[in-house]
Computed example of a mutant assay.
Amino acid sequence: MIRGILFDKDGTLVDFFSLWLKAALEVTPAFLRENNLDDNAQMTDYVLRAMGVEDGKVDPKGALAYKSYQEIAEDICRALEEKGIVLDTSRVQEQLERLFNGSVTSGDISYRELTDIGQVMRDLKGKGICVGLATADTLYSAESCLKKLGTYQEFDYVGADDGIRKPKPEADMFLEFQNKFHLKPEEIAVVGDTYNDVVFAKNNGGIAIGVLSGVSSEEDFRGDADYILNSIQELPQLLERME
């Protein structure tokens, strides 16, 4: 029986593409300029490919889809080294965090909910289920998103990149959630739109629920996820079947 659910944020609760793809296209030229590198189309496309973005499409197993800023910085630095360009990874991480946070938390940003998040969380809690967030996003950006949507208070737990927690699929956020509410691993479901969310669930003894509302297709989940849904709108029916 499921007693706790950890939700990914982007691609699961809010639209990934209108937020992060747009941000990546804005941030990359600015990042290149900050490092005194050419921000021409060729170099911009090269760095975007290092992030897992090509021809306006996001690789579901690429960095932008699920990795932390530290991991994205490492990927970009490795790619630039192949061109003979050496940058400090810590500085690149700081730049990416600042530039992306500025893009996705700006005053005019509009987050598009994939469903009525607040209602879903209230319905789940009405069934005695603890609800939490587990995202690769920074804590500041994640909380800013939830507060702007008016849903922050609906979450019993918010797990994000605070510079201390290890990112998914490491156990940190799963264990925090598990211990806070005295749950068994098998009582926790992880709902997310990437294979990384599935690994996060499976590595920690939880139930993996993949959703097709973000960057992944059914093929990306098949054989690994315990359940595959079109979106979290189908979650209530799934929980009823599982009971």
Rank of each mutant, 00 (worst) to 15 (best):
E34A: 11
F181C: 11
E154Y: 13
K9I: 04
L146E: 08
M1S: 15
E94V: 06
K57I: 12
P169Q: 10
K67R: 14
I129Y: 05
I188G: 09
N35F: 12
S144T: 15
V199T: 14
K125A: 12
T115V: 13
E170V: 01
E81S: 13
N196L: 11
D8P: 10
A171E: 15
K61R: 15
Q95N: 14
G150T: 06
L149G: 07
G62E: 01
A50L: 00
E243D: 11
Y46G: 02
K83P: 04
A79S: 13
V104P: 01
E26H: 12
E170C: 13
D193T: 02
I228Q: 08
T115A: 11
G128E: 12
N204S: 03
F200G: 03
L183E: 10
Y157L: 13
L32H: 02
L19Q: 02
V92Y: 01
G102S: 02
V53P: 00
T12K: 04
R122Y: 12
K180C: 10
G11M: 06
A63Y: 00
M173C: 08
E97R: 15
T138D: 08
K9F: 01
A142C: 08
D39H: 07
E176A: 14
N101R: 13
E154M: 08
E218P: 06
L114Q: 05
A23Y: 06
V158T: 07
D161H: 03
D88H: 08
V47S: 00
L48K: 00
L32P: 05
V199R: 14
Y111W: 09
E54S: 15
A201V: 03
Y111K: 09
K125H: 11
N101K: 10
G107E: 15
Y140T: 14
I164D: 07
L229Y: 05
L146Y: 11
L64E: 00
G126S: 13
F177D: 05
G192Q: 07
F16D: 02
I129G: 04
D55W: 11
G107S: 15
P167H: 12
L13G: 09
T135K: 05
Q119R: 15
K67F: 04
P185G: 07
E26V: 08
M51K: 02
R78V: 00
A134D: 10
A30M: 14
D226C: 10
L229N: 09
L239P: 01
V92E: 02
P236L: 11
K61G: 09
V198E: 06
K127P: 01
A65I: 03
L48H: 00
K22E: 14
S216M: 03
G84A: 05
D220C: 06
D108R: 12
C77V: 15
V191Q: 03
